[in-house]
Design a protein around this nucleic acid. Sequence first.
DNA 1: CTTGCGGTCGCAATCGTTTGCGGTCCAGCA
DNA 2: TGCTGGACCGCAAACGATTGCGACCGCAAG
Lengths: 350, 350
Amino acid sequence: MDGPVTLRDVARLAKVSVSTASRALAGGLTSRETEQRIQRIAAELGYRPNILARGLKTRSSRLIGLVVHNLANASFRVLAEVAQARLRAAGYQLLLCITADDPAQEEEALATLAAQAAEGLIICPTGQNGPRLAALERAGTPVTCVIRRDESAELETILAGDPEGAYAGTRHLLALGHRRIGLIVGRAETTSGRERLSGYRRALEEAGLPFDAGLVHAGRYEPETGLAGCRALLDGGERPTALFVANHESTLGVLRGLAERGLLVPEHLSLLCYEDMPGLAWQRPAISVVDNGPAALAELAVDRLLLRLRGEASASPAREYRIGARLIERQSCRPPASRTPSLRLPAEAR
Amino acid sequence: MDGPVTLRDVARLAKVSVSTASRALAGGLTSRETEQRIQRIAAELGYRPNILARGLKTRSSRLIGLVVHNLANASFRVLAEVAQARLRAAGYQLLLCITADDPAQEEEALATLAAQAAEGLIICPTGQNGPRLAALERAGTPVTCVIRRDESAELETILAGDPEGAYAGTRHLLALGHRRIGLIVGRAETTSGRERLSGYRRALEEAGLPFDAGLVHAGRYEPETGLAGCRALLDGGERPTALFVANHESTLGVLRGLAERGLLVPEHLSLLCYEDMPGLAWQRPAISVVDNGPAALAELAVDRLLLRLRGEASASPAREYRIGARLIERQSCRPPASRTPSLRLPAEAR
DNA sequence: CTTGCGGTCGCAATCGTTTGCGGTCCAGCA
DNA sequence: TGCTGGACCGCAAACGATTGCGACCGCAAG
């Protein structure tokens, strides 16, 4: 009983060679009876193959890297939870790397993941290490990007349905009669920031409303942005009747900003947020959101990765997928209090 | 340029044997000049040692398992983030396992971690797999438990300062003049649930106040518990003047419960929570909390684990550590509105 | 000149597993 | 009985690194 039991031990006890034992455990390569006998013995001994030795030989580590910016963001958190569960069920383990959206940290993470012989990668890229990711992909390590696109490389990518989501959200507010809709959004460097802004603009255009840059406040994904956005958007001249907050980090700041100004939701101002998280449903009033579906996104990312790991994916490279967003109406939006007549919207376009 | 560059490639280019190359890279085992020359060549080639091969020989995988119940809880989330950063800096990678507080999933996670030859473990145990953890420890894999104690095994454990934290929190409310303090707390099966309750009781006893079981509502770590707690504690006869909510999941439910009843914090009711999280500071009013210091807890867990991995830890087995909790006063607590005179508290005891 | 010694380096074994290749054995058929 | 073929199984070589041991070299001391 010294250390873990190896294949040699199993073979010795079964009075066969190591290779036979190996084949018996693999299955189908020996006679029925020896196969069953050896499997029984292995089970009795509690044999567990040494993954390092196997990996050395077969160049497989059963390790998948997950590279995200943080775990505070609900989308990343859900991604990690779902990916972990699904991959474990498929016999893989998850190596967690956190980059803080910093290209240098991302590069280091990629290097160590390569050294660890990770077999696949799910990553929300910073956008600065595209070549490196492409190299991994060429070297046979499937890489699936999520949430953000890396413009500098052609990689399979799974994005949220941000243009449609922001469009649907804006449209919802328009349909309620709002005409001045403030937007607090992520910066244009990010895929989501750009796309959510574009969805907002498209909905406005369709409704025949002019785009007013003074109604848009862009900033980082943090509560302070929401607070600053409140100041910029609410303390000016003509105040918007609705606020569309396009990420949940900023939402916290907005809630405080509104409270500080004594503004009630939805009586004085309608509030719609992007990205659902537990806190929002529990607010009073419960905040309506555009749910970007992080769980579905994670599921698809894992599905695609597993398919490619098994070599079953179609040869078509670098497809891009979208996860549909959907509006969850709760209690934070209602028609504006003012005399503005309800807007007649044109039929939905695509 | 086929596949990754191995030690052989380096050695060949440097015109030395593989063993010399290995020693040169390890450092201090060859002459100064060859050492530098080979290290230069290795760098130029972009050599990265194959961790699997190294691990096979040295029985080290540079992998640390992190086993937690989920990532939604702020303490677990911070634990994961901090552990990831610290361990990566120390040359380790983090294998993430999520158990949902389910002993069966925990057991499976432990089995796969053992197979992956994880070198160490940071785990928040369910309490049902103590023997297995002890076996790992005996087999030379250091195990550090966090947040919860596993009663069925003697393991190094790092706990939050829950008895003191709950004591300090309750005392704070008492000092403000509250006498009827409602407590919403985790169930007694959990270390933290038990200990926070005990801290609360001790503070009450010291103040000479009777313990009233009708003021305590215990439940799972989820928002619904807070909502139910509101119903149980606020809709009864004599209403408490302060609420101490001993976990942040329940806090969400409490906030809604208070809003539904039209109760203002802190005007009608003081509110104190346990475990800080971003949302609480951004509430209006900002919620006072007892911060259980998850970052410090994670730091210590990593420190202890690294020490033991390097074999530098003292031989004394199964020490238990506590992370001091501290009160963060924000704006959700004030003296009760009623005529209750301020309470003269006895000097703080331990 | 020989011997001893410290400093370098190469040989080869080793970690545990997989796998190509060849050998053995037996059944079946002529 | 002899031959063929297929089913099983064992030998040994990998995978890429680490490491004990011994060979070799040069230099100083005897």
